[in-house]
Amino acid sequence: MTVRHKVLIVDDELHIRRLIHAALARADYAVVEAENAREALDCLRNERPDITLLDLGLPDRDGLELVPLFKRQSDATLIVVSARDATDQKVAALDLGADDYLTKPFDTDELLARVRVALRNRLTRDGGNLSLSVGDVTIDLVARTVTKAGREVHLTPKEYVVFAQLARFPGRVITHKQIMAEVWPNEHAHHVEYLRVLIRTLRQKLEDDPQQPRLICNELGIGYRLRPGGDAPDAGHEQPG
Rank of each mutant, 00 (worst) to 15 (best):
V3K: 06
R4C: 04
H5R: 10
H15R: 10
R18Q: 06
R18I: 07
L24V: 01
R26A: 05
A34D: 06
L41I: 14
R45Q: 10
P49C: 09
P49W: 06
I51L: 14
L53F: 08
D62F: 01
D62K: 01
G63D: 12
G63Q: 04
E65R: 00
V67T: 06
R72F: 09
S74W: 01
D75A: 13
V81H: 12
V81P: 10
A83G: 15
A83Y: 11
R84P: 04
T87P: 11
D88A: 13
L94H: 03
L96S: 09
Y101H: 07
L102F: 01
P105N: 03
D107E: 12
D109E: 14
E110Q: 10
V134L: 01
G150Q: 05
E152D: 14
H154I: 13
T156Q: 07
V161I: 15
L166P: 08
P170S: 04
P170A: 01
P170L: 04
R172W: 08
T175Y: 08
T175D: 12
H176Y: 14
H176V: 08
I179V: 06
P185W: 00
P185C: 00
N186I: 02
H190E: 09
H190K: 10
V192R: 07
E193F: 11
E193W: 12
R200Y: 04
R203G: 02
Q204P: 05
D208C: 06
D208W: 05
Q211N: 13
Q211S: 15
Q212R: 11
Q212M: 08
I216N: 00
I216D: 01
I222V: 15
P228S: 00
G229C: 05
A235F: 11
E238N: 04
P240I: 12
G241F: 15
G241W: 15
G241E: 14
